[in-house]
């Protein structure tokens, strides 16, 4: 296993790339660092969605797990006073993966638009509940105390930035490993033809269930990291349907080409929005929507395919 990992080009790129990012992060302008941090944190959820998408499934409701992760961090902070990043992540991933595991029994039977919409329904039920619960601050949400790392309370955001970079690297490597396993390599096969996969002796439902739990856990981790980076949880920016839409948006923008793509997409999205807000406070949606349209039109395999094309061309000429 370790040997194959070493040989895997993507894994090497992930480690090198994230290492470079972690080092340079310290020298970045605060706002750049911050945008990258948010983008990467969102990228984790997108990574999960990408695995599902390769199977031909897309979820319009992963804000459910994103929100569970975020609120898990908020709740363990408020009720148990847990501020350690690892413990927070464990609770968040555990809670979201557990819910994903339960709902997975229902959802694994669904495909296409029904899968997408049932996810949406579940996420909106959670949204409806959270808005009603006054002790959780209703729509205002509540704040999350500062995150510590093994008892150390860092003075600036860089420590959290580095931790998020590392968490994303670990997530990317794990997913890459999974995709290389037998079950993982069925991913695209399931999309192309489920019956054939069944004939090969694999349970499609089970394979989808595993991927679903994985994507739920990743979305939970993503929500947890974002809650820690923001210092605040609230239903409208964590659980409401536009959050799910945004995640799908980034998934498509990034493209399914590589496990690195989601992080690239997340960061690009964050910068796109920042500049759209700044340049056109009255019409930023126009810029965001136009970009989405443009990408789907000219780059249906996402930004990653653009990079691949550039690399290939360079490879040929040199």
């Amino acid at each position: 296993m370790i040997e194959t990992l070493k040989k895997d080009k993507t894994v090497r790129w992930i480690i090198l790339g994230f290492l470079a990012l972690a080092i340079t992060g310290n020298f970045m302008e605060a706002w750049v660092q911050n945008n990258i941090m948010f983008g990467l944190a969102r990228g984790l959820a997108v990574l999960g969605l990408m695995v599902l998408w390769r199977t031909g499934l897309i979820s319009f409701g992963h804000a459910l797990y994103f929100g569970i992760g975020a609120y898990a961090v908020g709740l363990v902070d408020r009720n148990l006073g847990i501020s350690d990043i690892f413990l927070r992540l464990i609770f968040a991933v555990g809670a979201s993966a557990f819910v994903g595991f339960l709902l997975g029994f229902i959802l694994r039977k669904y495909r296409g638009i029904f899968f997408a919409m049932l996810n949406l329904a579940f996420s909106m039920v959670l949204y409806g509940i959270l808005v009603k619960v006054e002790s959780l601050g209703s729509t205002d949400g509540f704040s999350v105390s500062q995150t510590t790392i093994l008892g150390w309370a860092p003075e600036n955001k860089y420590a959290l930035f580095a931790a998020i970079v590392i968490a994303c690297a670990i997530g990317a490597v794990l997913v890459q490993c999974y995709l290389k396993t037998a079950l993982g390599s069925l991913t695209t096969a399931i999309r192309d033809n489920e019956l054939r996969v069944e004939y090969l002796g694999f349970s499609v439902a089970r394979a989808i269930h595993v991927k679903y739990v994985m994507s739920a856990g990743l979305a939970g981790a993503s929500g947890a990291l974002l809650a820690m980076a923001l210092g605040q949880v609230d239903p409208d920016s964590m659980v409401n349907w536009p959050v799910s839409g945004e995640l799908v948006f980034i998934t498509v923008m990034a493209g399914p080409g590589s496990v690195i793509a989601p992080f690239l997409g997340g960061v690009v999205f964050e910068f796109l929005r920042t500049y759209a807000f700044e340049l056109a406070p009255e019409a930023w949606q126009l810029i965001v929507g136009g970009t989405l349209l443009g990408i789907i039109f000219f780059l249906p395999m996402g930004l990653w395919s653009l990079l691949e094309r550039i690399w290939k061309r360079r490879g040929v000429s040199s």
Partner: peptide, 30 residues
């Protein structure tokens, strides 16, 4: 727009219409 997309994945088309929605919404504002 849609005419050129029928061959694409249904989710991609749904997202393209989402992009359209955002654009049309802002044109209303203008």
């Amino acid at each position: 727009i849609l005419r050129k997309m029928y061959a694409q994945d249904e989710v991609l088309i749904a997202l393209a219409t989402f992009g359209l929605f955002l654009v049309l919404e802002d044109i209303i504002l203008v």
